[in-house]
């Protein structure tokens, strides 16, 4: 077949022909990568923020919460997937749970930092105005902790985009499928490069979007800057 003869002769890092022929596959993998990232970070926020609030309210709990999230974070990604896969199989859920566990530490730590940076005066003023514990949290402390949370979400998003590629281990690695697929496909450089470039581009794009969103929801910081 001419394809084999061609690949032995020329193996460029970039190929329009490759992109055209495989547009559908590439698009599907971008969507998979994106949905993994969004779902994992969203789940990490939904689980992580309440845990951070708990650590903030009940000081003695903050040590154990941060420490256990830290241990999860130290466990290498490959090992984490290896722990989950034998029980949940090689499906989407295995990858998703691994990603959430990783993002969790970044979210908890940044939210807690944001919360503990709320000035004591502000907290006292809010109490003096008659805010209860929950109202103070929702209307004063969490809004003031938003910049910290946004930083955490940005960090978590960028590292999750990179981490999704490890999902190739169970055959669900988003753009990682292209990277490893190209490697196994006789070192097809165009496929590898397409996966790698799209992956980095996705991380940068999401980071910029979140940075813009962060500015939008904290107008008081913009005036100061």
């Amino acid at each position: 077949m001419s394809f084999l003869a061609q690949s032995a002769a020329a193996n460029p890092w970039f190929s329009w022909a490759y992109l055209r022929t495989n547009a559908d596959t590439i698009r599907a993998l971008v969507v998979e990568h994106l949905s993994f990232t969004v779902e994992a970070v969203a789940a990490a926020v939904v689980i992580g923020v309440p845990l951070a609030v708990l650590a903030y309210w009940v000081r003695p709990l903050s040590g154990p919460i941060l420490a256990s999230a830290g241990v999860l974070y130290t466990i290498p990604s490959l090992a984490l997937f290896a722990f989950i896969a034998p029980f949940l199989g090689t499906g989407r859920l295995t990858v998703l749970i691994g990603l959430v566990l990783y993002a969790l530490l970044l979210i908890i730590r940044s939210t807690l930092t944001g919360l503990s940076q709320v000035p004591p005066d502000v907290r006292e003023a809010a109490s003096a105005m008659g805010y209860g514990r929950l109202a103070r949290l929702l209307r004063v402390e969490l809004p003031l902790a938003l910049p910290g949370l946004v930083t955490g979400v940005r960090l978590a998003t960028v590292s999750t985009v990179a981490l999704v590629t490890v999902g190739v281990l169970v055959g669900k690695g988003g753009l990682g499928q292209l990277i490893i697929g190209g490697f196994r496909n006789n070192f097809y450089k165009a496929e590898i490069a397409t996966g790698a470039v799209l992956c980095v581009a996705l991380a940068v794009l999401l980071d910029l979007l979140l940075a813009g969103f962060g500015r939008l929801v904290t107008p008081w910081r913009r005036e100061r800057a």
């Binding site: 960028v158 985009v161 990179a162 590629t165 490890v166 990277i179 190209g182 790698a196 992956c199």
Partner: peptide, 10 residues
């Protein structure tokens, strides 16, 4: 942070 390890390894 944005570069996947897998990409560099391949």
């Amino acid at each position: 942070q944005a570069i996947p390890v897998v990409a560099l390894l391949t």
